[in-house]
Simulated assay, not measured.
Amino acid sequence: MTRPLPFHLDVLPTIPDADLPPTGILLIDKQLRLWQHSNPIGYATWFQQQSQLDRRLVEAKRHANVADVPDWQVRSTLQRAVQILKWHAMLYFADDTDHRPPSILITTLAARAYLGESDLFTATRAVMDRMNAYVENRHGQFWVPNPAHEDENFADKWNEYPERRKAFLRWHNDLAVLLDEFVHLQHKGLPTLAARMSESFTADAVQRSFQRLAERRTIELKTGKLHMATGGLLTTTASGPRVPRHTFHG
């Protein structure tokens, strides 16, 4: 017997939004009282534009036949950073799903805070530093507007349930502290860093990632392509000082 796939699909009735053609829509709320503004197609376009701030991605497309590399096959640094934030939030709130920040809220704040960093760790940590600055206060109401439709507020539940905002801030602070801890642990070796990461992320996925990282670092060190990124992590995408090749003979 085939096992059911672990996901579901929500279907909501919508109508065109005459005030925001051609992609704006109005969708019904759970109380069946008011039509809510939205623009998912416009949002996707905006997010893709934010991803294009990644200079590495732009260069890759510049030297490739765009028709041969569909967008869905190219993951930008921003996309990967958002995946990390959502992955951690999913695990952090595993036993408290009512207070888990909505995916669209994390994605929007991260994308607004992204300034084109190519190194994944640097981008993720920088996004964490800047994202709360994009939470607006409109007449006493917390507001994170949909970039494709200013009338849609992704933080609307914070005004109705203040404890959800407090949970978001607690998660944000704990993740920022954890990322800083990773920087210091790197100097104690990859096994120590992997062990600590496994405590906050899925252990199997972390171990597989570190195995691939160790293999790649060996090649990069031999070829002299390894650099020191902002914050102290080793990377091939940063413009920091190059790590000397190791000749293994003193």
Rank of each mutant, 00 (worst) to 15 (best):
F7W: 09
L9C: 08
T14N: 00
I15S: 06
D17P: 05
A18K: 15
P21V: 04
P22V: 14
L34V: 12
W35E: 10
H37V: 01
H37S: 05
N39Q: 08
P40A: 10
I41Y: 06
G42C: 08
W46C: 12
F47N: 10
Q48A: 14
Q49M: 10
S51T: 05
S51P: 03
Q52S: 08
R56V: 03
H63C: 13
A64W: 04
A67W: 10
D71M: 02
W72E: 14
Q73M: 13
R75C: 05
L78T: 00
Q79R: 14
K86Y: 02
W87T: 14
A89E: 06
M90E: 15
M90W: 06
M90C: 00
L91W: 01
L91I: 04
Y92V: 02
A94K: 09
D95R: 13
D96L: 09
T97D: 12
H99G: 02
R100H: 03
L105E: 12
T107S: 14
R112Q: 15
A113Q: 06
A113F: 02
Y114P: 12
G116I: 08
E117Q: 15
D119V: 15
F121D: 03
F121K: 11
F121H: 10
A123Y: 08
A123T: 04
V127C: 00
M128G: 03
D129C: 04
Y134W: 06
V135P: 00
E136V: 07
H139L: 15
H139M: 15
W143S: 03
V144E: 03
A148D: 07
D151P: 07
N153H: 07
N153P: 09
A155R: 05
D156Q: 13
D156C: 14
W158M: 07
E160Y: 07
R164A: 01
R164P: 05
F168H: 10
F168A: 11
R170A: 13
V177P: 03
V177I: 10
L178M: 11
L179A: 04
K188S: 15
K188G: 11
G189M: 03
L190Y: 04
T192I: 09
A194G: 10
A195Q: 14
D204A: 15
A205E: 15
Q207E: 15
R208M: 14
A214W: 05
R216N: 14
E220A: 12
K222R: 13
T223G: 04
L226S: 01
M228Q: 14
M228G: 02
G232Q: 07
L233R: 03
L233S: 02
L233V: 05
T235A: 13
A238D: 08
A238I: 01
P241F: 01
R242S: 03
V243D: 00
R245C: 01
F248R: 13
